[in-house]
Design a protein around this nucleic acid. Structure first.
Lengths: 125, 125, 125, 125
DNA sequence: GTGGTCTAGACCACA
DNA sequence: GTGGTCTAGACCACA
């Protein structure tokens, strides 16, 4: 179930990519599981199939899914993709931390945030 | 002295905004101090005046600077602007943390990052 | 015994063609020997009969097998087909070599590859 | 100067990618040199700008070029990209060699091909 | 002007 | 039916 945000400024195909990555990370989508077809998902979301196609093709280029013409699109072996995603996100945290520090954030303030996120229970979003 | 990175993917006007915000946070630019004019800065950086214009306009919209027609652009009272910037950056950290957690980042991994950033000394960038 | 690789990107009908060509080259399939029927092979491999049909039709078009309506498909006189296949594959090697050379591959690098392939013993795959 | 082959079956965007990779490999295109704009190249080749866009975006995703909105597209630092391309092409040679061997190609036949390619002079295509 | 996103719709190879 | 390619054309952010 993907809900699109047309006001956020984030491209639709990006939102779709993120949602799929998220579901892989959370174990909702598992290796070799089939994704909705390009056309089906496009119909469901009320958008153009080309936009789904773009999302799927980028994910395939990144080794996250694989596509079989005439069959459909499937989740790739999760391990490799997952490690890459984790690494990217840790780098994003570091960058955000540096900017916050520059704006005057203190160590205790940051620690409070970290604790808040890690005590929220399983689902972080 | 602003150095632009054309290959980082970050829009030029954003880099300019960030640099000014940074200098305010670090106390280099102080309240009511005058910024270089749009044309002067454009010439210095070898870029289109429209780009500087956009950076200044957004900073004015965010209450960070104020413009006096025919006089130039000036740093707003720092306290107010600073608190808003800090708040935004702490929110960015929270968002980055949530995404990292979802990708499998553990609490100790995050703590290591935080310590790394806060033990680097004064200049975080 | 054909094993299909759904993730290699190579079309299924191509994999079937290649496997048959390979078995002819290796002398496993001999002249006038009967191939499994389209339906039998489709059932065995768990794929669509159309896919087998396409593989057989192309092989027939290339003079590698011949079909007798109501009887089945048979291996063509091996000599003729084999020479054509060999010629095609040598052309493929030339093309690959030219592209590698253009990308900076040196003669010794190529010689190393050739030796590696030809010293591996009977089974090259 | 790119000439397209509409009969080859190779997608147009692939042909464009290959041509650019080739020119980088041959040193015709150098680091930070600007490529023709999406629209210009589309007009020149008589094809849709979207097709050029796709070629450029894939090259950017592969780290071969970088694009600056409002400025144009440029050749990335060549070293890294070049090594990746070379490695891929050597693997293609190995695969072609294995298939040729399986079809009965002898070592001397292969050596003849290699010599033919490497004695043709600078321009292999 | 330049790259990036998206829609609408056609046509193809493959299964 | 399914993914892949391509055209035509609109609109956007950025420079």
């Amino acid at each position: 179930m993907i809900t699109l945000n047309y006001q956020s400024g984030m491209p639709i195909y990006q939102q779709i990519k993120n949602k799929i990555l998220e579901e892989i990370m959370l174990g909702i989508l598992k290796a070799d599981e089939q994704l909705p077809t390009v056309r089906t998902l496009a119909r469901e979301l009320g958008i153009n199939p080309n936009t789904i196609q773009k999302a799927y093709q980028e994910l395939e280029g990144e080794g996250v899914i694989y596509s079989l013409t005439g069959k459909g699109s499937f989740i790739q072996n999760v391990g490799v993709a997952g490690q890459k995603i984790l690494k990217e996100r840790l780098e994003a945290v570091t960058k955000a931390l540096e900017e916050a520090k520059m704006a005057g954030a203190t160590r205790p303030e940051i620690d409070t945030l970290v604790t808040a996120v890690y005590d929220k229970g399983g689902n972080a979003k």
